[in-house]
Amino acid sequence: MSDMKIPPGRITPWHQNNWDWRAAGNFIGGGSGTGLLFFATLAAANIDAYRAMALVALALVGGGLFCVWLEIGRPWRAINVLFHPHTSWMTREAIVAMPLFACGLAAVWFGGGVFVGMAALLGIVFLYCQGRILQASKGIPAWREPKIVPLILATGFVEGAGLAAVLAAVLPGENPRWLAGVLLGALILRRLAWTVYYKALEKNGLPKKAMDVMRSFGARFEMLGQLAPEILIVAGIFYGAVLPWLTLVAGLVAAAAGWWLKFTIVARAAYNQGYALPVLPVRGQGEVKPGIRPGWSK
């Protein structure tokens, strides 16, 4: 459809105003927390280190959920969020959060055992729910793209590996050197997921303003959020003596880039569908004309 001159305002897509930084906070805290919970099982040098990592992870997930609670219009009815597991990924996320916290706290309390693995697995399920929450938002073209699910998963893993690298460096105990390789692998995975997601957006079209946001963000993200930590890790591998410190910095940058990515998608690129007419109606003596979809990239 052609994009003819349309007065700005009510016709073209505009930025949704229902979910703001608080919603982004849920995806940031949830992704980083569950990612960290997963990598804590591998990266913690000892049980005390695991306890510290798991507590930070649970605090992140809890902080994210608290952000959502701050945003809802009727916070004292929040328990109602559990009513619709049949189709709502938000309900499913909330339901998974309960055993996630129970297993996470049990793992911290007992210092290991089956709860460690269960908490890590439930964290992945929670993260998957977050990806599906965005995908089910049909009114926001940048979110409903199905490739957003692997992107949310991949960046959650990167953030988790990054934070695990940071915490492993500062907590007492041996800092596993292979964590650098794991972080590099996660970064490569996120690069792939980002590329696939971005290409899908370009192919299917987005509201122009959303595309502008993603284009501007994408160039900087690939340099600062992807390439920079990747180079740091590779440099550390070649100069082994500084590997732990370079991994720490790379982990911090990689995690921060993930937060930046989610803040951008949730709070800056969330332009709605707008309106479109497949054809222009007959009026008076006129004829049917080709339709319009104003404000779209294609």
């Binding site: 229902n18 809802i72 219009g73 109602n80 938000m90 926001i140």
Partner: peptide, 9 residues
């Protein structure tokens, strides 16, 4: 309704 805004997006 809890006013979460999910329906709106």
């Amino acid at each position: 309704c809890i006013g979460c805004g999910y329906c709106a997006v």
